[in-house]
Design a protein around this nucleic acid. Structure first.
Length: 578
RNA sequence: GCGCCCAUAGCUCAGUUGGAUAGAGCGUUGGCCUCCGGAGCCAAAGGUCAGAGGUUCGAGUCCUCUUGGGCGCGCCA
């Protein structure tokens, strides 16, 4: 549609240049057409005349008039007008509009799909919360956004892989094991001093109980808390060392794996509840186990991108665009988290991902450059790695702003939010903000305002349409309620507004995919719902006059399709009744 | 100190790769159901788009600076 209009305009400009009405170089002017924002401005508008006026040394209005006059007839176009200060406004023909209702209804569930992505593989990595605690409302943003983006990309013609990467090794996991172990001892009646900076959440106690119930045994603490270092983090490390000594490597691993397993299982259940699914859960520990980690380091080393300094092994990231070099292996022989991350992203490349999008919290923004640098160093520079940074979700508690912390046990579980307001409202709530916008979260407020959630406005429009269609079907004896429609009778402003919005759906989907901004779909749907509700109040659909009735029912059926498809992209249900 | 993000109505936020008179929800005020679902519709009030320069026919949007806020800068993850 847009393309053919651009062509019409270009032809007109060329004709004027050939005729000498415009300077010859005007042919090269970029002709852009955009949706008109106001009804008086028609359906599409073009601003070339404003740009050409300088070259032509006449007023923009005169140029616009010339262009409007020399546009050739087209079945698409009803009329073309020049408008101050120099826009060319295009009004589509009723025929073109009527046909588009049929186009939408024929496409049905496929309306809005495109091959914009050309079938290219793209991996969306999101959530990726470590198994140290349940998902909280901060993770919910990543889950809602990542899942919606993945759905949008699928609709835009990409082959999408969804992946969850979790760090199931390293110090965090030891702290988790320690936390559980101490709670187990506590259950056994021992007197413990639970460290301030271990995992304090109540779920740790539950895991400890389950561990005991499952026959897990642990040795007692004894002098466990004597002579500990004063500094908090050192204290944890010492407790971990004592625990490992007491339980032995196997005993420690048993409790660690049990805890991580329980938490991961819980996370998966929460994600399923939140209607988020992954093609793959990728374990960091598996990279070491499979030898991929060693292999990656060797590969970089052989290529001459690693060097030793102060006993540590460094990657010369600064040669590949990062601001400084980064440690890959510490002086104590342990790898940093960066090393497996390199191996992981090389594995993505190995699996054929030309494009990778990592959805990360804004606090990880320095991180993506170094991984990119590593990809270039490994000769995979042509594989594109992008990050979508979601700004922080702050927790508001009694008017005070806290940052959510799994360690301190300060968070609201995602599950709690969904139980309070429902999955639809929760997902829509997250998707109502663009990624770069920070977000404060107050459960009490969310609960109080849940009935104001615009999701109901959109769902209500869908349910209303279904209800009208059902009634019309019943009244009309069932079949054929759309038969004999005369679309030329749709002459209300409310009708052209609604239809105009419906026609914008496909480009809204590709824009959301291109800009990685699923929130655009949410705002678009609110607009469509608004046009529908206005229409609903403006006239009756189940009309006496059959050709008009059928046309109106077809139009709202098209609206039903768009709303259902759009909500589907957001992972929100489109109920027929509410 | 360096880097990234943000600043739009009383509050929470949109604003289509620069377009015409800057929009919506909530809140406030006043209207609309004998009729397809009132979780709806209509209207009013509410703005120096943080500030100052610049680019452009045209700037909330792009560039520079200033102010104010968030985050990051570890051989933590």
């Amino acid at each position: 549609m847009k393309e053919s209009l651009v062509q019409l305009l270009q032809q007109a400009v060329r004709r004027l240049c050939d005729a000498g009405d415009l300077p010859a170089e005007a042919v090269q002017a970029a002709v852009k057409v955009e949706r008109a924002r106001k009804r008086e401005h028609g359906d599409f508008a073009c601003g070339v005349a404003l740009a050409l006026a300088g070259q032509a040394r006449t007023s923009p209005m005169a140029v616009a008039q010339k262009i409007a006059d020399s546009i050739s007839d087209s079945p698409l176009v009803d009329k073309v007008q020049a408008a101050a200060p120099g826009f060319v406004n295009i009004f589509l023909s009723r025929d073109a509009l009527a046909q588009s209702i049929q186009t939408i209804r024929r496409a049905g569930e496929d309306y809005g799909r495109s091959d914009f992505g050309g079938g290219e593989t793209i991996m969306v990595e999101f959530v990726s919360a470590n198994p140290t605690g349940p998902l909280h409302v901060g993770h919910g943003r990543g889950a809602a956004c990542g899942d919606a983006l993945a759905r949008v990309l699928v609709a835009a013609g990409f082959a999408v892989l969804r992946e969850y990467y979790f760090n199931d090794s390293g110090r965090q996991m030891d702290i988790l094991a320690l936390s559980v172990w101490l709670r187990v001892l506590e259950n056994g009646g021992e007197k413990i001093v639970f460290p301030e900076n271990a995992y304090r959440g109540g779920y740790i106690k539950t895991i400890a109980q389950n561990f005991c119930a499952g026959g897990g045994e642990v040795c007692g603490g004894g002098a466990l808390f004597e002579n500990l270092p004063a500094e908090d983090e050192k204290k944890l490390d010492e407790l971990i060392a004592r625990g490992k000594k007491k339980l032995g490597a196997d005993g420690w691993a048993k409790i660690l794996n049990f805890a991580a397993g329980e938490i991961m299982e819980n996370i998966r259940a929460d994600l399923a509840m939140f209607r988020v699914s992954f093609d793959n859960y990728f374990s960091e520990a598996s990279l070491a186990a499979s030898g991929a980690l060693e292999k990656t380091v060797a590969q970089l080393k052989n290529a001459g991108h690693l060097y030793e300094k102060d006993g540590a092994l460094w990657f010369c990231a600064s040669k590949f665009g990062d601001t400084e070099d980064r440690v890959v292996r510490r002086a104590n022989g342990a790898y940093t988290y960066f090393a497996p991350d390199i191996a992981y992203h090389l594995d993505k490349v190995r699996r054929g991902c030309k494009n990778m999008i990592n959805i990360l919290g804004a606090d990880h923004h320095g991180y993506i450059e170094r991984v990119r640098a590593a990809l270039s160093a490994a000769g995979c520079g042509e594989h594109r790695l992008d990050a979508l940074f979601l700004q922080q979700v702050n927790l508001i508690n009694g008017g005070k702003k806290l940052q959510m912390s799994t360690r301190r046990g300060e968070f609201v579980p995602l599950r709690t939010l969904c139980e309070e307001v429902g999955v639809d409202a929760a997902r829509f709530f997250y998707l109502l903000r663009k990624p770069a916008q920070k977000m404060n979260f107050d459960l009490a407020l969310a609960r109080a305002q849940s009935s104001d959630n615009p999701v109901y406005y959109v769902q209500y429009a869908h349910a209303r349409i279904c209800s009208v269609l059902a009634k019309a079907g019943a009244a009309g004896g069932g079949a054929g309620i759309f038969a004999g429609a005369d679309y030329a009778l749709l002459q209300l402003d409310a009708e052209s507004d609604l239809l105009g919005a419906l026609l914008r759906y496909p480009e809204t989907v590709t824009a959301a995919a291109r800009q990685r901004e699923p929130h655009q779909i949410a705002y678009y749907l609110r607009e469509v719902a608004n046009y529908f509700h206005v229409y609903y109040n403006r006239c009756r659909f189940i009309e006496e006059q059959a050709p008009l009735r059928a046309a109106r029912l077809a139009l709202i059926d098209a609206a039903r399709i768009v709303i259902a498809n759009g909500l589907g992209l957001l992972g929100v249900s489109a109920p027929e009744k509410m």
